[in-house]
């Protein structure tokens, strides 16, 4: 045992700076987050209030709705946003001309640099029932315009599509890197056997990136209750607020009204706890299913 530890020492040296960093910049703040259970005082010690902040959050008449919204929006994003960059990477991989491929990649990752305020403006204008481009097309096809931004049935889909628009190109980069890491000899062998494009994709490329997909999926599960504050905050309006009000926007409003930041910290810890449970669950599930998890 000691011998093996001694053999491993260079690896611990490599890990050490990271460990120190995590303790300083992550675990100390987590310790400071004890203020979720306190009332902050400038003079003297903070007052311990236990779970008061949690019960405050949860006694609101709208809390259930907010929680349900968060879960629905997160689930929709997991289902419909998460796979898009994978398809995109596969598509881009099929573009043979390197120059063209780089051009496409450079173009579709641009929206990642726009903040949600700007993106919300773009979407609201594009989806306007009177003069938006999307509704112009719908009207041109002979249908009645749809007020996407104020329609209770469509607003969550607006969140899904704007998220895809903003992040699919950027996120596809990671999968593209995974594809690049696949051994080209596999493709050569497959070609020798007369495999076509479709077969190579399903037999070699996709299995090759499954570990990356699984890892990202499990990590994303951990952030399940973060349904996208900036996005919702900028896209919401009175007509549909009750459909897309999520934990983060809710806590933000309550915190603003009361000036209580212990409340926000309390919500953060709550989300973290749920996230931890979910990430461990997803890991175990994946391990049972595929023999591979995150750790």
């Amino acid at each position: 045992m000691f011998i093996s530890l001694r053999a491993w020492w260079p690896y611990y040296v490599m890990i050490l700076p990271g460990i120190i960093y995590f303790i300083l910049f992550h675990y100390l703040p987590i310790y400071e987050a004890k203020l979720a259970f306190e009332n902050f005082r400038i003079f003297g010690d903070n007052i311990w209030v236990g779970l008061d902040h949690y019960s405050r959050l949860m006694t609101s008449p709208v809390f259930m709705q907010v929680l349900i919204n968060t879960l629905i929006i997160s689930a929709m994003k997991m289902l419909f946003v998460f796979p898009v960059p994978i398809f995109l990477a596969l598509l881009i991989n099929e573009v043979r001309a390197t120059g063209l491929r780089k051009f496409i990649q450079s173009a579709i990752y641009l929206p990642h640099f726009l903040s949600w305020v700007v993106i919300a403006g773009i979407f609201i204008a594009a989806l306007s029932p009177s003069n938006g481009a999307v509704n112009d097309i719908i009207k041109g096809a002979g249908f009645a315009p749809i007020s996407f931004m104020t329609d209770a049935g469509s607003i969550r889909w607006v969140l899904v599509f704007s998220e895809i628009w903003r992040s699919a190109g950027w996120d596809s980069l990671l999968y593209f890197a995974a594809i690049m890491a696949i051994d080209p000899q596999l493709y050569e062998a497959a070609e020798m056997d007369g495999a076509n494009r479709w077969q190579k994709m399903t037999i070699i490329t996709i299995p090759g990136i499954v570990p990356t997909i699984a890892t990202l999926f499990i990590l994303n599960i951990g952030l399940f209750l973060n349904a996208g504050f900036d996005q919702v905050f900028n896209m919401t309006n009175d007509a549909i607020r009750d459909k897309i009000d999520i934990i983060d926007t809710y806590v933000y409003r309550i915190g603003l009204q009361t000036g209580q930041f212990s409340l926000a910290t309390a919500a953060g810890l709550f989300k973290g706890l749920i996230g931890l449970v979910m990430i461990v669950g997803a890991h175990n599930f994946s391990k049972k299913l595929t023999g591979k998890g995150v750790w």
Binding site: F25, P29, G272, I279
Partner: peptide, 17 residues
């Protein structure tokens, strides 16, 4: 490491540290 992904204490505790 994973714990640090899910627990984001927020800007205020960060500031104090």
């Amino acid at each position: 490491v994973l714990i640090t992904i899910v627990f984001e204490p927020g800007i205020i505790p960060d500031f104090f540290v």
